[in-house]
Design a protein around this nucleic acid. Sequence first.
DNA 1: CTGAAAGCGCTAACAC
DNA 2: GTGTTAGCGCTTTCAG
Lengths: 336, 336
Amino acid sequence: MAVTIRDVADATNVSPSTVSRVISDNPRISQKTKEKVRLAMKELGYHPNFIARSLVNQSTSVIGVVFPSSGDTAFQNPFFTEVLRAISEGAHDEKFGIQLTTGKTEEEILNDVVQMVQGKRVDGLILLYSRQDDPIIDYLLEQNIPFVLVGQPTSKPDHITYVDNDNCLAAKEGTEGLIHLNHKKIAFIGGVNGLMVTNKRLAGYKQALKEANIPIQEDYIIFDDFLIEGGKHAVEKLLALKELPTAVLVTDDLMAMGVMQSLNEEGLRIPEDVAILSFNNTIFSVLSNPPLSSVDIHIFDLGLEAISQLVKRIKNPEEPVSHSIIPYEIVIRSSC
Amino acid sequence: MAVTIRDVADATNVSPSTVSRVISDNPRISQKTKEKVRLAMKELGYHPNFIARSLVNQSTSVIGVVFPSSGDTAFQNPFFTEVLRAISEGAHDEKFGIQLTTGKTEEEILNDVVQMVQGKRVDGLILLYSRQDDPIIDYLLEQNIPFVLVGQPTSKPDHITYVDNDNCLAAKEGTEGLIHLNHKKIAFIGGVNGLMVTNKRLAGYKQALKEANIPIQEDYIIFDDFLIEGGKHAVEKLLALKELPTAVLVTDDLMAMGVMQSLNEEGLRIPEDVAILSFNNTIFSVLSNPPLSSVDIHIFDLGLEAISQLVKRIKNPEEPVSHSIIPYEIVIRSSC
DNA sequence: CTGAAAGCGCTAACAC
DNA sequence: GTGTTAGCGCTTTCAG
């Protein structure tokens, strides 16, 4: 059995409450007692039991991180690992632990979240995605537990603290860039339809075309998974059309890798035959051949801001809802 | 305040212990009572408090995952995200939660582990690396808490359950492959020196050379980080030599990417000028140009086996130490 | 400055 | 079958 506060108390002839006060460095305890107790703690190898503390404090100093329902594929995408890295770093600085959801289907994940929240395992959560009609958001709102969304909510924005880029503007600016390069036939390859980030970037793409008086062609708009395979499927669909686009806006580097591979297999040159502008500026954009032009959305900052907002809300439940917009920048390499 | 077992008891005119028994589906409770209580639980929105349960059970159903001290870089390397994915999947099936270390230095990580263990936050741990003189191993052994090592321990193997590949054999076989391709000048580019995986693969490399009567050339043996930069640094060192190797064994795909980049910049062709055999067979080996030949160490299986062993040991403390060796296979593409 | 006592929410003997 | 009681390890009034 582990050594408890009681053992320390007995060893030093003080009461458990005194030991507890020494742990929290309560100023009303004499220096002498503190030293005596601390010595005993060291000698006995005492270490506070967080579970017991959590039970009385009703807080665990652990935050939950919720992955999208394609969670098993998410680990492949540097976007998620990079936000996770930032969250991990921020959590460490704030002395919070992090726990991950492990479910793969939407239902399992909701279940994970309920376990975390009702089981009182976490003090707050960060959601790494935003999609339409997500019951998790409603649940969290209803439970009134602090949470931060990475991405823009589809509804009730006034009640939800989120951290995001201006994805609409980023996509618009990116598309305009392609237009300035004299492209008129520009395709859009986005992640799963229903994801807010996809919606927003699509909106920006359409705006840019509209303002340039380029008609929007629905079969140039394709949705698929944030994976290499997703990019490949998208190209297949484009190849089936009678007229290939001369440029594509791809909303994820990993997808862009798939797009490039498939184009290569068809003997199409990048950027001569098809120009590509991608998103996320991950390690893949540097490694690919040719190196990808990509919108750097500052993933790490997104994560850091999310954890910082969350901790703020955990510490002060009255903290008003806030919306942080992280700047982006377009990094031009050789793919457009 | 959340609804407790007491509230449910009051609402149904039974005692708290009865409610507790209903929760655990104790067979000695009458069907009628069970239904009555379950109905009340539903109506009141009762959900068990895991923290309270953990306190009395002395177990949390959470396992800790320990990242290497270069934790911030680990997230970049698909090896770690892939084991994590497997662990996540296994943990989910076993109804365990997972918590990650967040520290970046060795000291911080040891600290994280102590918090998890002494704070009774986790029932067991998985270490994602094995290096020489790791105080964490000693600590865990001393605390007598279940843990599983992914990799081979540097000492006390009889007391440590681990999951690994036969890295020595894999490297030997890989090197032999290069030798069969008529290479005599073969370099070894490994991860940080001191990591067990590096040692083992180096040993296999040396064995193969020895058996082929090829003298071992110390300046062909280079250690660096499991990162693109690591691979680049290694190439710099090789370029400084008077005689370039005609083949290299690189113990990680990400490093191999750096190696290839640097070789390309020097105008050296792969595999004509320098052949490459890499390790891990991650997404990078497929994406690179030319596609990398790589030793597939079955990362996912490594993770699954680790979590399965850990859970076994958590459920049965008497479970004897076990050593699992996961098979590997060499996947030949175009880099050698 | 320190101690006694209550209680966080739950489970597990031990009764009956 | 079900209730009573004690206790997991800690914090926090309330006394003194």
